Simulated assay, not measured.
Amino acid sequence: MRNRLIQALRPVAPGIATMVADDRTGLTVLPAAWLSGWTLIDAQQPGARHARRVHLALSERAEVQVLTGRPEAFDAVVRGSEPSADTAIAIGRAFLDTTRTFEKWSYRVERPEEIVGLPEHTDPILADLRIEITPPLPVAGPAGWSLRLWTVTGTSLIRHDLCVRRDRTVEDRATVAAPDLAVPDSV
C-alpha cells in the first residue's frame, strides 16, 4: 500500500508523498466497510514535538485524495448510493475524523466523559450541554439523514449538525457550543 500511495501522491502532493515514503511514518487503514472502491488511511510521522498527521483516501485504481481540511475531497470519495441510518452515522464520524486540520488538537466525543481533562465541576454552560452530548441519532429527512456529532477543538466544544445527503455527501453546520473549556488544548 505504501508504494501505491507514494506513486499516487507524487503528482498532486509531493510533500505528503515524501512524508509517506519515510519508513517512520505509520499508515493505518481506518475502518470503513461502508465505503466501496476506496481505503481511508491515517498517516502519522513522528516528530520531535508533535507528529505530522494527514488523512488520505486511496482508490483501487490508485487515485488519491488528501482529506485533511478538505470536506470536498471527502465528498468525492464517499459519493454513492443512499445510505442507511447506520451508514449515515459511520459517514458522519468518518467525515469529522478525516477532514479535521490538526492546526489545533481536535477529537470527536460522544459522551461528556470523553472530553480529555474535563474537571468534575465545570461551568454552567457545559453542565447544560451534558445531556446533549450523546452518540448520534440519525433522523430521516427530505435531503437525507440529519445527525448531531461533537468535537473538542483546542479548548472549545463544537456542535456539528450534519446532513448526510442521499448521495452520501456531507453538509456540516458547526457551532461553538462552549468556548474556553478548562481542558488541555494540546497533548
Rank of each mutant, 00 (worst) to 15 (best):
M1W: 10
R4L: 11
L5V: 13
Q7T: 15
R10A: 14
V12I: 15
A13V: 09
P14Q: 08
A17F: 09
V20G: 05
A21K: 10
D23P: 03
D23W: 07
R24D: 13
T25K: 02
G26K: 14
A33I: 02
A33F: 01
S36C: 06
G37P: 05
W38S: 08
T39D: 13
I41P: 02
A48Q: 12
A48T: 12
H55V: 01
A57N: 05
S59N: 05
E60R: 14
E63M: 12
V64I: 12
Q65L: 12
G69M: 04
R70Q: 13
E72C: 00
E72V: 04
A73Y: 01
D75F: 04
A76Y: 00
V77Y: 07
G80K: 07
G80W: 05
S81Q: 15
P83I: 11
T87I: 14
T87L: 08
A88D: 08
A88V: 10
R93E: 00
A94M: 00
A94P: 00
R100A: 04
E103S: 14
R111F: 01
E113Y: 02
P119Y: 03
P119N: 07
E120N: 10
I125V: 15
D128E: 14
R130G: 00
I131V: 12
E132V: 00
G141A: 13
S146V: 10
R148V: 15
L149H: 01
W150T: 02
T151E: 11
T151R: 09
T153A: 09
G154P: 01
R159Q: 12
H160K: 07
D161M: 12
R165Q: 13
R165A: 13
R166M: 10
T169G: 02
E171M: 12
E171L: 15
D172K: 05
A178N: 08
P179S: 09
D185E: 00
